[in-house]
Design a protein around this nucleic acid. Structure first.
Length: 843
DNA sequence: GAGCACTGC
């Protein structure tokens, strides 16, 4: 690694530092800026009082840099030079240079909004654009209004500097001469076999040419995930030119020992097949050639459906640059990209920053605590998508963390005491109410680490793990808690951990986290000395945090589930609760399937009893006086009832009343507290009796009139082009089909989704849709229009399922092949359907 | 082949 030419930079940096409060510096990763710039600022007296804080995206980097700078200056670590990461604080009152991870500074800001002891903030590796770094930059800029002497220096490698320069203006740009070795870039001459061949086959075909151009040193191959890495290694076995090479995998799920093996030099030349972990986190010495698949798994969040995504996508040009650079760290190198030069130009210039693609509830709550009641008040470097902000606002409202005007409540401030997503913080407060706080702190902790019990392929491990379920287990969290407790009892004996496949490292980290949550809980006055919790206590607490994650198994033969808000997915095969008809799922993730489409995986499931939904009482959700009579609390209750109605009534309603028609009516009538059961068909009266007891909780609500515009019509036939929406309305057709696209049921509303209903007194009450409601149907229909066989939403092919519905809305038949359905299956079925269900007008 | 890239308080 070459030293930064600090001498050439010293004069301009010193001059700019005096004149400007914000500066921008671009230099490649590993140029020495992270260690040299802070020392220069200190030695030149440019930060005479206060700390120079250097923000790092990773804990390991913060630790290593502090260690190195302390050594260079001959001081003890934690004295003049220190660091702070989540688990460690190695710094003191005399610390002048402090390396901290981005989240740590955000936390510090929450307890000390002026950061009085900080003289300068250096944003290192800012081009990585992690969410906390982005947020911190905006906060620091805003803070300069109160503390004009605070200096900001943004350091980045491949960032499009003009955007930051504009944001920080006036900010001088410093650009020292680069010192990297040249890397020759090669592209494929023709697109790989029409893009049809698996990426590992393309890689194996290209390997000999690359090896011929790299006579010495190791080779680094980038693949999107562990599965592709495995297939690549197998494919390389058949390549003659690779004989004599040691071929090793490298990804985050490997044990520390296996990762070390891939990083440390061996006797033979090596080919290391890695994920993105080798792009930024792990540096491998001696790499002279890079083979780049051009693919990466990219995390995202769809605010409309409230679903996380993890999909394989082409990397940006900047990321490809970063990957190629891995070949030129010690000597000139070669990089072969498995795409054409022409395709390269069509790739996005930069990876979408995190703030554009993740759930914003947690940062938004922090902003509100810091005085930015509305997200538009905040000086975003790049504002997040409005839909994501709306979703986050709605979630915070539903958790009672904010009031109707979007201001933080005292409950919201309580949530913020925990370094957790507001949902999990909410889980802890609810757990204190239901009496399962110790268990809940452990559940929250294990969601924040690597999986403690990752899915096992080894039959011996599976069998040993089976012993954990000798007694029935109410959920996947509960199963992990059981394995974790057993391992704790054995003091994490390696033999035991290995036998059940428990990741001791992750468990120890979770131990520390749970302990920390308990310290915070105790200081907040929450009761921790409770007897071992029952499944009901834990289930009810989980419901308060995840009211929109209730799911029901569609049938016993498959793992398909329906979720509230017209979503659905597939329960993870590895889940421990295959027996339960009603579930609460902790995670919903959309993943690639093997056909170029997607599937929605439901994991971390917990079995639910209908009674917990039906009998969830206001006091189970009570936190403090100000919420007891707050309408917002009723919203949560109303939502729970809707879950109940959606899922339970659908089985019970028959004959002429369809669930889609009845549910909103019932929900509103129910909320009114004055339901007259005589008005309803006999089949549903047993359920109404239970519902009436729910309604009794909110006696001040009155029966609303049912607004016909709220009636829903299933899109089905419209989508496949058989019947137009107008036909459905004019001819008063019952819905015959329901169409599922990915996780979302596509339905159409006759008008816009209603926002209010009217009480007999004439007063209007808002209808609150928990995220991600109501669906934006107009947009959905446009996306679908004209797409007969391979509907795409946002460029991604969505699995299409069509259900033929009986008048009671239960599916008669299901198909996934639209073409053959429409050509053969449906025409063959139609006569029978017409006889069986004459009420339908079958197209 | 069926969980799933990388981080972080």
């Amino acid at each position: 690694m070459d030293a930064l030419p600090i001498g050439e930079l010293a004069a301009p940096l010193a001059a700019a530092w005096g004149a400007a409060s914000r500066l921008l510096l671009t230099a490649p990763t590993g140029s020495g800026k992270s260690t040299q710039i802070p020392q220069f600022l200190l030695d030149a007296g440019l930060a005479p009082a206060g700390q120079i804080v250097v923000l790092q995206p990773r804990r390991l980097a913060a630790r290593m840099l502090a260690r190195r700078v302390a050594r260079e200056r001959g001081v003890a670590l934690g004295s003049a030079v220190g660091y702070q990461v989540r688990d460690e604080h190695v710094a003191g009152p005399h610390t002048r240079i402090c390396y901290v991870t981005e989240g740590v500074l955000l936390r510090r800001l929450l307890s000390d909004p002026d950061l009085r002891d900080v003289a300068a903030i250096l944003f290192d590796e800012f081009h990585e654009r992690h969410l906390p770094g982005d947020l911190m930059l905006g906060l620091a800029r805003a803070l300069q209004a109160r503390r004009p002497e605070l200096k900001l220096l943004v350091m980045s490698a491949t960032l499009d500097v003009s955007g930051v320069a504009d944001y920080l203006a006036p900010a001088p740009l410093l650009q020292p001469a680069g010192r990297c070795h040249p890397v020759a870039i090669q592209y494929l001459e023709r697109a790989a076999a029409g893009g049809r061949a698996p990426i590992w086959e393309t890689a194996a075909r290209a390997l000999p040419a690359l090896l011929a151009g790299v006579p010495e040193g190791d080779l680094l191959v980038f693949m999107p995930g562990a599965y592709e890495i495995q297939r690549t290694i197998e494919a390389f076995r058949g390549v003659g030119a690779a004989r004599g090479f040691e071929v090793l995998p490298l990804h985050g799920r490997l044990s520390a020992a296996d990762q070390d093996r891939a990083v440390s030099p061996g006797a033979r030349r090596r080919i290391i097949v890695a994920t993105n972990i080798a792009e930024t986190s792990i540096t491998i010495a001696g790499v002279r050639g890079v083979l780049d698949s051009g693919l990466a798994r990219e995390a995202g969040f769809d605010p409309r459906r409230g679903i996380e995504t993890l999909l394989v996508a082409p990397i940006s040009r900047a990321a490809a640059e970063q990957r190629s650079g891995r070949a030129g760290r010690t000597a000139p190198g070669v990089a072969l990209r498995l795409w054409t030069a022409r395709e390269h130009e069509q790739r996005p210039a930069y990876t979408r920053p995190e703030i554009q693609r993740v759930d914003l509830a947690e940062p938004l709550l922090a902003l509100k605590a810091l005085g930015f009641a509305r997200s538009t008040d905040f000086p975003w470097f790049e504002p997040p998508p409005p839909a994501a902000l709306e979703q986050a606002e709605a979630l915070l409202r539903d958790l009672a963390a904010t009031d109707a005007a979007g201001r933080i409540t005292s409950l919201g401030r309580q949530l913020l005491r925990f370094p957790l997503h507001p949902r999990y913080a909410r889980l802890l407060l609810a757990a204190a109410e239901t009496g399962c706080l110790p268990e809940a702190t452990r559940i929250a902790a294990l969601t924040q680490t690597r999986p403690l019990l990752p899915p096992a392929r080894d039959p011996a491990v599976r069998e040993a793990r089976g012993a954990l379920t000798d007694e029935p287990v109410p959920g996947d969290y509960a199963l992990t808690l059981r394995g974790w407790a057993a391992a704790t009892a054995q003091r994490y004996a390696p033999a035991f951990c290995q036998a059940i496949g428990l990741q001791a490292e992750a468990a120890r980290e979770a131990d520390r986290l749970a302990a920390r949550f308990q310290v915070i809980a105790r200081s907040a006055g929450l009761a921790l000395d409770t007897p071992p919790a029952t499944a009901a206590q834990i289930g009810r607490a989980l419901l308060a945090a995840f009211p929109d994650r209730v799911a029901r198994r569609c049938d016993q033969g498959s793992l398909r589930c329906e979720l509230v808000h017209g979503r659905r997915g597939e329960l993870a095969r590895s889940s421990a609760v295959h027996h339960a008809p009603l579930l609460l799922v902790g995670e919903i993730t959309e993943l690639d399937d093997r056909h170029g489409g997607v599937r929605t995986l439901l994991s971390q499931a917990t079995a639910l009893e209908t009674e917990w939904l039906a009998e969830a009482r206001p006091d189970a959700l009570r936190d403090e006086k100000e919420y007891r009579y707050d309408p917002r609390q009723k919203r949560v209750l109303l939502h729970l009832r809707r879950c109940f109605l959606d899922l339970v009534l659908r089985d019970q309603i028959r004959q002429d009343v369809t669930a889609a028609e009845a549910a909103p009516v019932l929900a509103q009538a129910l909320a009114s507290g004055a339901l007259e059961s005589a008005q309803w068909p006999e089949a549903i009266t047993p359920w109404l009796a239970r519902l009436e007891s729910l309604a009794a909780w909110c006696p001040d609500w009155r029966l609303p009139t049912f607004d016909a515009s709220a009636r829903q019509t299933v899109l089905g036939a419209f989508c496949v082009g058989a019947v137009g929406a107008r036909d459905l309305k004019d001819r008063k057709l019952l819905p015959c089909f329901r169409v599922w696209l990915g996780a979302a049921a596509v339905t159409v509303l006759e008008r816009e989704a209603p926002t209010h209903f009217t009480l007999p007194s004439g007063r209007r009450r808002p209808i609150v849709y928990c995220p991600p409601q109501p669906p934006r149907l107009a947009a959905t229909i446009q996306d679908l229009d004209g797409l007969q066989t391979t509907p795409r939403i946002a460029g991604r092919r969505m699995p299409l399922t069509i259900e033929i519905l009986a008048p009671n809305q239960r599916p008669v038949q299901t198909t996934t092949d639209l073409d053959s359905f429409w050509r053969t299956a449906y025409p063959a079925l139609r006569p029978a359907l017409s006889r069986r269900y004459p009420k339908h007008r079958w197209p």
